[in-house]
């Protein structure tokens, strides 16, 4: 059994008094696409952000390819916080794509994609921009390299954001509703990029309401409800009958039921 790409162990997350994740255990297998689905407010984003240590777990541990991220198991079982440089080192294996793109507005597409290569990895400007261009080509935006984010459509901005993450050669890519702030006609171009990434064997965790995408591309689906992982399994196991009543309700309320039927 190989080490999981991400291993979430006993994750508890509280915001003040409110506990939003009640002890999550989840393994993300290498080279597969895992989709996190669940109703709004069920804690999908929080779980994904904990996996990237953008959110600190209240309790529990996260392992990235076997290495602890953020907190390590302590001597008395109490997690101890790791130093910032160590966090950056482990986190460098992860790329993240946000719902709001979060491109840096004062840099061109090329600037966004080459920034960390130059600033963090000390790659010379020419080489960094060459490597950035390769990523922009991959997402079909080579001609837009000199554009600022405000001069790009939402779909193009999201593809630049994907290129920015890929330029750092992550082993794992996390996506938090990458298409839900896009107009419907622009979601396709982003999903296509994600599909080809999956076909290349990238380990991916995707929070998505695109049930069709989840059913077609994911090898594993995790259904989150009220801060608990109700079930994990293949699309067939999750969407096939008999269905968990909460999942049935969720599909009824939130999603295109027809898409799930196709599985």
């Amino acid at each position: 059994m190989t080490t999981p790409a991400i291993s979430v162990k006993g994750l508890i997350k509280r915001f003040g008094e409110a506990e939003v994740l009640h002890g999550i255990d989840l393994d993300i297998p290498q080279g597969q696409v895992t989709c996190l689905i669940g109703p709004s407010g069920s804690g999908k984003s929080t779980l994904l952000r904990c996996m990237a240590f953008l959110e600190e777990a209240t309790d529990g541990l996260i392992f990235i390819n076997g290495e602890p991220l953020g907190f390590a198991p302590g001597p008395q079982g109490k997690p101890v916080r790791l130093p910032a440089a160590r966090i950056r080192a482990v986190r460098s294996q992860i790329g993240m794509v946000f719902q709001q793109f979060n491109l840096w507005p004062h840099m061109t597409a090329l600037g966004n994609v080459s920034e960390a290569l130059k600033t963090v990895h000390g790659v010379r400007k020419n080489e960094a921009e060459e490597r950035a261009m390769i990523q922009l080509k991959k997402v079909g935006l080579a001609e837009r390299a000199g554009h600022y984010p405000s001069q790009l459509s939402g779909g193009q901005q999201q593809r630049v954001a994907i290129a920015r993450a890929l330029a750092l050669e992550p082993k794992i890519m996390l996506f938090d509703e990458p298409t839900s702030s896009l107009d419907p006609e622009l979601t396709g171009e982003v999903l296509n990029v994600m599909r080809s990434l999956a076909a290349d064997g990238m380990t991916m965790v995707v929070v998505s309401h695109e049930i069709g995408f989840a059913a077609a591309v994911c090898q594993q689906i995790a259904f989150l409800d009220h801060g608990k992982l109700l079930m994990t399994g293949t699309p067939q196991q999750i969407f096939g009958k008999p269905r968990h009543p909460r999942l049935d309700q969720f599909l009824d309320t939130y999603l295109d039921r027809g898409a799930a039927m196709l599985v």
Binding site: L54, G95, F98, N102, A161
Partner: peptide, 25 residues
């Protein structure tokens, strides 16, 4: 905040974020 989270994910240290992202914006 999201711009700084993107910078976190890109591996920029606090000082690099100040110099390259926060101060220019």
């Amino acid at each position: 905040r999201g711009l700084l989270e993107a910078a976190d994910m890109a591996g920029l240290s606090a000082f690099q974020q100040f110099r390259r992202i926060r101060a220019p914006i």
